[in-house]
Design a protein around this nucleic acid. Sequence first.
DNA 1: TAGATTTATTACCATAGGTTAATTTTTATC
DNA 2: GATAAAAATTAACCTATGGTAATAAATCTA
Lengths: 191, 191
Amino acid sequence: MEALINKIKDSQDLSQAAEAYLYSIAKKKTFAKGALLIQQGQRVNKVFYILNGCLRSYCIDKMGKEHTLQFGIKNWWISDYIAIYNNEYANLAIECLKESTVIEFNAKKLNNIFSLFPEFEPFQRQLLERHVASLHKRILNQLQLTASERYALFLEQYPDIEQFTRNYHIASYLGITQESLSRLRSEIAKK
Amino acid sequence: MEALINKIKDSQDLSQAAEAYLYSIAKKKTFAKGALLIQQGQRVNKVFYILNGCLRSYCIDKMGKEHTLQFGIKNWWISDYIAIYNNEYANLAIECLKESTVIEFNAKKLNNIFSLFPEFEPFQRQLLERHVASLHKRILNQLQLTASERYALFLEQYPDIEQFTRNYHIASYLGITQESLSRLRSEIAKK
DNA sequence: TAGATTTATTACCATAGGTTAATTTTTATC
DNA sequence: GATAAAAATTAACCTATGGTAATAAATCTA
């Protein structure tokens, strides 16, 4: 929990009262590998700040195929933001890829923080701005890069994540099948 | 300009002073079809609110191919947010697809509005939240839909835009070539 | 650690979409 | 409105990636 508090203090002053409120709505939890923090179809009222471990959010299409939207590691937030921001039922699942410790927040209570302590607004705004920019980049990469270029970029961006992920997690993040990823890897190995 | 002011008033109170500040930093401009509001390589210090018309943001890859990130129509914001939020040079161009009238803001001055008039924070936060959710959806669609499904969805989401766009604008938004889009269209026409 | 289960690899064939190039259609310009 | 320029269509061929299935390897579990 101090990790998050310190992160916030890096970019803004944090009053005693605000810090106390944060503590009052935060629950530190540890989930085992394979645990589902959010499941498709649920009403989503939780967002998670990752203290350590590795998680992913994914959806399952009509053919039963999984598509990974996001990996989450230390100091990242993760939830189903489509559901939260549009007040819909979860279309995503959040899965623990290795034992992970997170801070769980009730989404509504966390959202109240902005009216109670407006000093959080600039912090959140910057977080959202950086998120938007990174999503724009992801879309442009998806449009212009080949599967093998995307894989190379992924390894750059998540250098240590492969030890926690299955091949098909990565493939479904890149938008290819696990068999195709397997082929890419064997071509890379040949060189 | 009233259009934007009214939009803001829909979701929050707007003090006289805040409204005056908005006016003081806004320039209404009309651009001809083909005009480039932002060009790759420039330092980006402008964001645009679209009063009417149609624009798009796109990048050009090493092979010279264009990739459309976004179309912008009435009441949308458009700029190179990767450049603005990361303080980088423009990697995107913003092009006018038909004569368009926009409100041009200096990005820095627009950003100052949050310290001068914190009442804008919730408005901006909600804008960013909806933007994040829609980008998440776009990525999931790109991962799980075929080209023809994406085209159908595009037509749903932008029902009137085809009259202003070239075929290759749409193709480069969907992540396919204009020839492929042409094939899709002829298959649809057959049915 | 053995056995069971899950995951990764490989090979083969299928297919969506890319490439190139020629032709037709649409749009812009004078 | 005639001409030039740009864009769209179509076809033939090509390539990257998908689908299936069999095998090997890794991981889990008792």
